[in-house]
Computed example of a mutant assay.
Amino acid sequence: MDDAGLSGLAGGAAAVAASAELAGLAAGGGHGGHGASGDCLNCGTTLASQARFCSQCGQDTANHPPSLMEFVHEFVSHYIAVEGTLWRSLWGLMAKPGFLTREYLAGRKQRYVLPLRLLLTLGLLFFLALKLMPGSTHTLGLDDEADNEVVQMVPEAASAAASASKGMAKVKKKLAEHSGEMHILNPEIATQLPHGMQDRLHRAEDHWRADPKGSMHAMGATMLGLAPYAVLCSLPFFAGLLKLLFWRQPYGAHFVFAMHLHAAWYGMLLLAVLLPWGAVAFAIWAWSNIYPVVALKRVHAGSWWTTVLRAALLAVLHWVIITLGLVFLTMAGALAAG
């Protein structure tokens, strides 16, 4: 290509750049988008020259509707590209028990994904994978060979999955054997409920007798849908148990630990669903039992024998919460099935 052609291309590129800059100024309402000077449109603070964010409220200085590519760039830069925040957080969460809690309590928060965001993200991915991955409920031991359509979700640690699934399988067997005489509640207790609730219970029992398999499927679907909310509701109680056992730490620190611990359990369950192999499942089960003890030891810096003793007591009390949660989920599922 000759010099004239190169000059023409350079001139065209310059014109396009100038047009884009003018368009940015117009879209930014005179503030020019990112890097513009002036006042923050959110709080009115005077912006520094070429500032991309307001120093007072943190809002960006771009005054135009974001494009799809800007959304993608924001996601990638925030979660992946910016110093590997996501991967550093996942590694610290899954491979180094208690590490993220210690970092958070030490004030080093910006380096990692915040605990609530980790919990919600991993929980969402787990329940999504549980619904979409073929055979995922069988991998976690939540169904049996007689009825592989029934989904009964136990919304807690992987360490509880094996024993809990056996108990749920026994409940299913008993329900199938005695479906003709099914009672959601003891009749004496049911008579003390409001009339509207009693009618709902009677309809649910009639539906169970008429279609036990369909009722169990509806019950499992309801329990699976409520399981994420049950886990979130259990966090304050779990943090309260930690406060009883480790009373020197403030309650807020225990709540952060509870979020990190449940996020790690979600991550383990997600791996069990995505990698449904026997060796992987055993490794996850073993790590899920070791993880809480190591995390408690790292965060509270106690001796090993006191940490193990308190972790055992915590597990027993935690099972009480799990049992109450299962009772609630079972009741909700049974009522929804009717």
Rank of each mutant, 00 (worst) to 15 (best):
E70M: 10
A283F: 14
L275I: 15
K173H: 13
P236H: 11
H300C: 11
L22I: 09
I184G: 05
A20Q: 15
L175R: 02
D144S: 06
V150L: 06
L235V: 14
G8L: 14
G338V: 01
A81F: 14
P65D: 02
S19Y: 12
L122F: 01
I80Y: 07
K96N: 08
E21F: 07
L245M: 03
A264L: 04
A337I: 01
G38P: 04
P187M: 03
A337G: 05
L116Y: 09
S215K: 01
G220K: 04
Y104L: 02
A51K: 00
F127P: 01
G5P: 06
S179L: 03
L271T: 06
F99V: 02
S215A: 12
T139V: 05
F127M: 01
A253Q: 14
K213Y: 13
N289P: 07
P276Y: 02
Q192K: 14
S7H: 14
L86I: 01
E83S: 13
V320T: 11
L130I: 02
F246G: 00
T137N: 10
L314C: 05
A62K: 00
G35R: 00
A311S: 11
F282L: 08
E21P: 05
Y291A: 02
M133V: 07
A279G: 12
L130W: 02
L140I: 03
L193N: 08
L68R: 10
L309I: 08
L9E: 13
S67E: 06
L93G: 06
T306F: 12
M133W: 09
A279T: 10
H262L: 13
L235K: 08
P250T: 12
A157G: 03
Q192M: 10
A81C: 10
H254C: 05
E145I: 02
H217R: 10
R88T: 09
G5M: 13
N148V: 07
Q198T: 03
A279S: 11
L274M: 07
E177K: 14
A164K: 01
D3R: 04
F71R: 08
M168A: 03
G92K: 01
V327P: 08
V72P: 04
I184L: 09
K174D: 14
W277C: 07
H318E: 04
L326Q: 04
L241C: 08
Y291S: 00
Y266S: 13
M268V: 05
L261K: 05
N42L: 08
H34V: 13
G302N: 06
V273R: 00
G5L: 10
G38D: 03
S77Y: 09
L313Y: 07
R209N: 13
N148M: 11
M182F: 15
A15S: 12
L6V: 10
L235D: 07
Q152M: 09
A169D: 04
P115G: 01
E83L: 03
A286I: 06
G92Y: 00
R310D: 05
G267M: 03
M216C: 13
K109C: 11
P194T: 07
A18E: 12
S89K: 03
R102G: 10
L9W: 10
L313F: 04
L324D: 15
G58V: 12
V171L: 00
S89H: 02
I80T: 11
